[in-house]
């Protein structure tokens, strides 16, 4: 039904009647040969597909990293095991206050006595990374009001017990001080021991 008539015409000598008649006199060997003949194109296609699939698995075996596989749980731990170790080897950027104390003992001990005692050096000074790479890049914090206001500006969302000021000028007035030009938080408060 799906073949054109043109094709059918070329096969006219193979009408079913003629076909069965001939088959009656076939030897077993001939039958096997005709069976192979009818399946010839299918075998070829099957070989082609098999070759493609085999090729796929050969390429796959070469390209999948050795440590890839199920590491315990298939659902959540089917991965390249080396990946976790590679990530663990990344250098840490923040070093922690203990590291700073080695060179900056006075500031470190001053800090320990006061309101900022719980703070890490890098909270205000930023990450240690550049400083550490023998560039001696300074880690100074700008002494601006804004640097302190990041934590201490009054916000309704901040816990009420946390020390906050509405504005620098209001705070100065509240403390009965005169607002002088160039005055910042650090004029009165040592950031390492503010209170």
């Amino acid at each position: 039904m799906i073949f054109d008539n043109a094709t059918r015409q070329t096969n006219q000598n193979n009408t079913p009647a003629a076909y069965t008649k001939r088959q009656t006199y076939r030897t077993r060997h001939e039958e096997e040969a005709s069976f192979m003949k009818a399946y010839d194109h299918i075998i070829r296609f099957a070989l082609l597909i098999t070759a493609v699939i085999a090729g796929f698995f050969i390429i796959r075996a070469r390209l999948v990293p050795e440590s890839f596989g199920v590491q315990g749980s298939y659902s959540y731990a089917f991965y390249r095991a080396d990946s976790a170790d590679e990530q663990a080897a990344l250098p840490a950027v923040h070093q922690g206050s203990a590291h700073c104390s080695a060179c900056h003992a006075p500031q470190a001990s001053l800090r320990q006595t006061n309101a900022h005692a719980g703070l890490e050096c890098e909270t205000c000074h930023g990450s240690f990374k550049a400083h550490n790479n023998n560039t001696k890049e300074r880690m100074a914090v700008s002494g601006s009001v804004d640097a302190c206001m990041l934590c201490h500006a009054a916000l309704t969302a901040r816990p009420a017990q946390f020390p906050q000021i509405d504005s620098f000028s209001a705070h100065v007035a509240q403390q009965n001080e005169t607002l002088l030009p160039g005055m910042t938080c650090v004029t009165c408060h040592d950031p390492h021991a503010p209170m």
Binding site: M1, I2, F3, T7, T10, N11, N14, T15, P16, Y19, S34, K37, A38, Y39, D40, H41, I42, R44, F45, L48
Partner: peptide, 20 residues
């Protein structure tokens, strides 16, 4: 395209029809 198999006798075409 024929994969070198130019057999279109009724046996193979009948097989093809079944497969289709």
């Amino acid at each position: 395209l024929a994969l070198g198999s130019l057999n279109d006798d009724e046996a193979s075409l009948g097989l093809d029809r079944k497969i289709i």
